[in-house]
């Protein structure tokens, strides 16, 4: 019997081929960087741009294990801590506000009438354009960085959560009322728990934006953080540290996304497409 081609619409790729195919682009990137570094160092033995993975990991090791002379801190860990703090506080506030706004917009027409046009307008606005205004209004301290993460995510989150809540059938709302819930009870006792996996999905979509605004705000004005360190190292042409920090940020982003995905799958198995 003739098998279906793996290149066709009904192609099925078994393990370990499925995994190995996924590794190809990542391996290509790592090997490509190493090959580029070898060629670069052959032409520029003292060059600082592409010095291979060995030097990148050595730089990361140094940042993680050698105390900084000025601050007396292990810079990699302190940078990670402050950036994560800004990211999570800004994102947390944005999720809280967006969940309330999005769900209320979906279930109360008068709230929708007031806020939805505004949310649609500003969610299409790249918040980076107002960075100077936020800087003037929020100052140069922590509030500015948290505000940038908040502003960069809250409108998109509101729109996404509104969409998910709006997709809940009207029948369920009516049914909840007939079971004895008050209008606010419909939202807080039934719909918010019901929408938890949708909110997690919205957070996962907003995460890249949150990272961008956390790092950009640190690059703009700061004295610590992963974004600040990359900006400082750029001035000193410390490409090893910069690439090392890019790796760290990537791993942190993947880790946070993985944790959210795992929570969603384990706690809300009914939310997968088959479960719906």
């Amino acid at each position: 019997m003739r098998k279906k081609s793996i290149f066709g619409l009904y192609g099925h790729i078994k393990q370990p081929w499925n995994f190995l195919l996924g590794v190809i682009p990542i391996a290509f990137l790592f090997i490509g960087f190493q090959v580029l570094s070898w060629n670069y160092l052959a032409d520029n033995p003292d060059g600082k741009l592409f010095r291979g993975w060995e030097n990148v990991f050595a730089a990361l090791h140094r940042m993680a294990t050698v105390k900084d002379v000025m601050s007396g801190e292990y810079l990699l860990w302190s940078d990670m801590f402050v950036t994560l703090k800004r990211l999570l506080v800004g994102l947390g506030l944005a999720v809280f506000s967006a969940a309330l706004l999005g769900v209320h917009m979906a279930f109360f027409p008068w709230i929708r009438a007031i806020f939805l046009p505004f949310i649609r307008l500003v969610s299409n606005l790249p918040v980076i354009i107002v960075i100077s205004i936020v800087l003037l209004l929020a100052g140069t301290g922590e509030f500015f960085k948290v505000a940038m993460v908040f502003l960069g995510t809250v409108f998109l989150l509101s729109r996404d959560i509104f969409r998910s809540a709006d997709a809940v059938s009207r029948q369920r709302v009516t049914k909840t009322l007939t079971l004895g819930a008050s209008p606010l009870g419909v939202i807080y006792r039934v719909m918010l728990p019901r929408l938890a996996p949708d909110i997690i999905a919205a957070i996962r979509l907003a995460l890249p934006g949150a990272w961008i605004y956390a790092l950009v705000s640190e690059m703009t004005i700061s004295t610590d953080g992963l974004g600040y360190r990359v900006a400082v190292m750029r001035r000193h042409m410390e490409m090893d540290v910069i690439i090392g920090y890019v790796l760290v940020v990537s791993l942190l982003a993947i880790l946070i996304d993985f944790v959210l995905k795992t929570i969603s799958e384990k706690r809300y198995p009914w939310h997968n497409p088959e479960g719906k």
Binding site: Q171, T178, A196
Partner: peptide, 29 residues
């Protein structure tokens, strides 16, 4: 409101709750 119960063609159960929790939803709410 609670004076009228409703059963739809689409069951409209709460997907995040178990069968027992769905049944007990009225007394709880």
């Amino acid at each position: 409101d609670v004076t009228r119960g409703i059963v739809y063609q689409d069951h409209s159960l709460f997907p995040h709750l178990t069968a027992w929790q769905n049944v007990m939803m009225g007394p709880k709410l």
